[in-house]
Design a binder for these strands. Structure first.
Length: 426
RNA sequence: GGAGGGGUGCCGGAGUGGUUGAACGGAGCGGUCUUGAAAACCGUCGAGGGUUUACGCCCUCCGGGGGUUCGAAUCCCCCCCCCUCCGCCA
């Protein structure tokens, strides 16, 4: 959510932001609703002031045992006028609020202009792309031959876009989760939390999945709760409606969660393998920081995500997302992308964003900069560190061997208890 | 799921229709005292919004939403959450 006063006083700033995003938004409608709201509000408040004054006088008269009937009758009329005007005020407030909920965040000045993902900017590459003389096998073939992923039975049990991991596959998933969390807690200063995997509508408004993206989530029938699409939701909302003290910041959390995505509109994309599932595991990093620190925090957040790829010795690049590809709530975003041999390209495996105060305003997360000072909104950030299923796929593909086995990256061996996944004996 | 109790400011905790935005504590902030600190004492101290060049003025907020009333933290209705006991369950 943007600051209504910023919109009111600097509509040019908003207009430019919308243009950079190539986004249609009825800004003039919002501005005129705001103007009308304020003029009605002024009148209602005048009447209320009058009423308050009269009510106090009535109280005084009654205490003195005098007759107050005349004033009461007069105020009865005023009360009616107030409720009529107030209805209009509320209507306008609802309209303004609804519009504020769907106006996207302002891209940071440093975000490259662009129309689509074609215009995203690669900022760095790391690692060496492996060669496969006989061509790389896709991870779903490798997994099938190793007997570690079962899509068919998952389809029988749950449906399309679910997976059963088995044996070393299941263990690899679990090893990755533990490895990632340990790295972030022990070396990057994050506090581990284990969140609920269900969140209520208030939380989803707070982090801005709602109202615009309800279709992408699984709603629990008969409730206003949803399966979380990412741990970002519960972990950011951990501090909803709170005033933090300055010494708590920066506040850095790492959380494992299963993530659930209905993926409306994704039919036909990445239908094979582990890349796009309705349920997947993710280790998420979430930070609450002072506003002046948030861009520095974004850089270190990306480095924290990259560290996972480096430890696993997976080749990757980092892409800076352009204005046209930037998500609704993001002010700036970097996507680390891992090399996926069978795709012959880099594939998104993390997404690290600074939301500035966009989520903090919605979720009402504030802090007191100094004892006695006025409260301010914090800045929130988050990033995957990393998407576990995609990491597993990347390991299978990048570490595949000519004999059908898959070597386990060194960093993972203590967690796996093996240094190689062997194909079953025939 | 059933029964009972409860949700008040940064925290604790009063307050059941008329100067209560809220007593009293604590924390914080400013000051007196002190070489310094502690203690003591004095003062200050919620959030959001409208309006104003500004000082200020005004409105709203006591879990959320409706209602009654000239007037509601206080009365009525619905909902949510927390606690205790019972049931169920891992």
């Amino acid at each position: 959510m943007l600051d209504l006063r910023l919109i009111r006083n600097h509509p040019d700033v908003i207009r430019r932001a919308l243009a950079r995003r190539n986004e249609d938004f009825p800004l003039d409608e919002l501005l005129s609703a705001d103007e009308e709201w304020r003029s009605h509000l002024a009148r209602v408040e005048q009447l209320k002031a009058k009423r308050n004054e009269a009510s106090e006088a009535i109280g005084r008269l009654k205490r003195e045992g005098k007759d107050a009937e005349e004033a009461i009758v007069e105020m009865r009329a005023v009360a009616q006028e107030i409720s009529a005007l107030e209805a209009r005020v509320k209507e306008l407030e609802t309209k303004i609020h609804d519009l504020l909920m769907v106006i996207p965040n302002i891209p940071h000045e440093s975000v490259p202009d662009g129309a689509s993902e074609e215009d995203n900017v690669e900022v760095r590459r790391w690692g060496t792309i492996p060669e496969f003389p006989n061509g790389p096998k896709p991870h779903w073939e490798i997994a099938a031959e190793l007997g570690i992923v079962d899509f068919e039975r998952a389809a029988k049990v749950a449906g399309a876009r679910y997976a059963f991991l088995r044996g070393a596959g299941a263990r690899l998933e679990r090893a990755l989760i533990n490895f990632m969390i340990d790295l972030h807690t022990q070396e990057h200063g994050y506090v581990e939390v284990w969140p609920p995997f269900i969140a209520n509508a208030d939380s989803l408004y707070g982090t801005a999945q709602l109202p615009k993206f309800g279709e992408d989530m699984f709603r629990i029938e008969g409730t206003d709760s949803y399966l979380i699409p990412t741990a970002e939701v519960p972990v950011t909302n951990l501090h909803r409606d709170e005033i933090l003290t300055a010494d708590m910041l920066p506040l850095k959390y790492v959380a494992y969660s299963a993530c659930f995505r209905a993926e409306a509109g994704a039919h036909g994309r990445d239908t094979r393998g582990l890349i796009r599932q309705h349920q997947f595991n993710k280790v998420e990093l979430v930070q609450f920081v002072r506003p002046e620190d948030s861009y520095e925090a974004l850089e270190s957040l990306v480095r924290d995500a990259e560290a996972v790829l480096q430890r696993l010795e997976l080749p990757y690049r980092v892409v800076e997302i352009c204005t046209g590809d930037l998500g609704f709530k993001e002010a700036k975003k970097y996507d680390p992308e891992v090399w996926m041999p069978s795709y012959n390209r880099y594939v998104e495996i993390s997404s690290c964003s600074n939301f500035e105060d966009f989520q903090a305003r919605r979720a009402n997360i504030r802090f007191r900069p100094a004892p006695g000072a006025k409260v301010e909104y914090v800045h929130t950030l988050n990033g995957s560190g990393l998407a576990v299923g995609r990491t597993l796929a990347a390991i299978l593909e990048n570490y595949q061997q000519p004999d059908g086995s898959v070597v386990i990256p060194d960093a993972l061996r203590p967690y796996m208890g093996m240094d190689r996944i062997e194909p079953p004996a025939k």
